[in-house]
Design a protein around this nucleic acid. Structure first.
Length: 334
DNA sequence: GACCCGTGGCA
DNA sequence: TTGCCAAGGGT
């Protein structure tokens, strides 16, 4: 992480280069937002290991993968262990993909581990083992989308990139657009707004990215934002409008009885098994199948889901198709 | 754009 | 307790 410390030494000096003006926001207001949110971040940012100056680009990249839909608190220990074990892309690339998935543990969305492993191999093959430093190069890596590419560009390399994540979108929606929540999906208007708000100065842009994200994560939260401590509450369009309700209510993610629940249970069985196991251990729930001792608990929990045989088959084949599991001679493994 | 992909902390 | 939802990506 590149902390633009220079901003703290002269906090009220305007940047020499012009800042784009966003719709509904004056130049002066944009400057003020940068200053207030930046100062707030410097005073209140969490001390996360991937933000420290000594953290490698690879460390930032690993954190970004893990943080895709998984909260910071659960990522912290996993990141520490991952970096201890695989401190460079080359170290991970030399491993079996299955080992990466196993080390991913219960972070969720195990395909991220698979893609991170594939990205490490691509980095070794195409970039001499060094995490590439441009948005386009990063975007070409497996599992790296527009958010992650911009985040690594900004946080690991200190280059100007427009980072747009769910936190930043929410801050923009409220502070600028006066809405309770951003649109259901990122659209062109939101992207234009984010680009227009981005400081032209490279250092300032990195601070703005990190600071806006942190503000969304700690203060301008989805559920009950703490506007009373918000550094930009007096500029916030949403507050000024009386905090109107969002135009829609996000539909909750269903879980019980879904394929995802069953896939998760199957993945737990496979992670526990450090050797290939009989296929029917997963696909056949008849109680006379005896699991190896260390698998008993997870297999039992899998059986208690009460899934139909059709659903079991569909999910199992899905795992094979996604490359999360492989089958040979009626034995399956990660 | 809609949908799918895991998991667990927290109110 | 039940439901929300968290630094997204891929199809």
């Amino acid at each position: 992480m590149f902390y633009p410390i220079s901003m703290t030494s002269s906090p009220h000096t305007p940047h020499p280069r012009a800042v784009s003006t966003a719709p509904h926001v004056s130049f002066a207001q944009t400057e003020q937002l940068h200053q207030l949110v930046g100062d707030w971040f410097i005073a209140n940012a969490r001390d996360l290991p991937w933000r420290r100056a000594e953290c490698s680009a690879w460390g930032v990249m690993v954190s970004e993968f893990m943080l895709q839909q998984t909260p910071v608190k659960r990522v912290l220990p996993a990141w520490e262990e991952w970096m201890r074990r695989w401190p460079t892309p080359k170290d991970l690339a030399a491993e079996e993909s299955a080992e990466a998935v196993r080390a991913w543990g219960r972070l969720g969305y195990p395909r991220r581990a698979q893609r991170l492993h594939a990205a490490a191999q691509a980095i070794v093959l195409e970039h001499h083992g060094d995490v590439p430093g441009t948005y386009e190069q990063l975007l070409a890596l497996p599992g790296v989308g527009s958010y992650t590419a911009a985040a690594i560009t900004s946080f690991a390399f200190g280059r100007r990139a427009t980072v747009i994540d769910t936190n930043i979108r929410r801050v923009h929606a409220r502070a600028i657009s006066g809405k309770g929540l951003p649109n259901k999906s990122l659209n062109a208007a939101e992207t234009r707004l984010a680009e227009a708000l981005m400081p032209t100065d490279e250092q300032a842009s990195c601070l703005w990215n990190a600071a806006t994200m942190e503000l969304g994560a700690l203060v301008c939260t989805a559920k009950s934002p703490t506007c009373n401590i918000c550094p930009i509450r007096h500029l916030c369009a949403w507050v000024a409008a009386g905090k109107p309700e969002a135009e829609y209510t996000p539909q909750g993610q269903s879980w019980h009885g879904t394929d995802r629940q069953l896939r998760g249970a199957m993945m737990a069985v496979l992670r526990e098994a450090h050797h290939p196991i009989p296929k029917e251990l997963i696909t056949n729930f008849s109680p006379d199948i005896v699991a190896p001792k260390n698998l008993s608990a997870v297999v039992k929990s899998l059986r208690t889901l009460g899934s139909s045989q059709e659903q079991i088959q569909r999910c199992y084949e899905g795992l094979l198709a996604d490359g999360l599991a492989s089958e040979k001679d009626d034995l399956v493994s990660l």
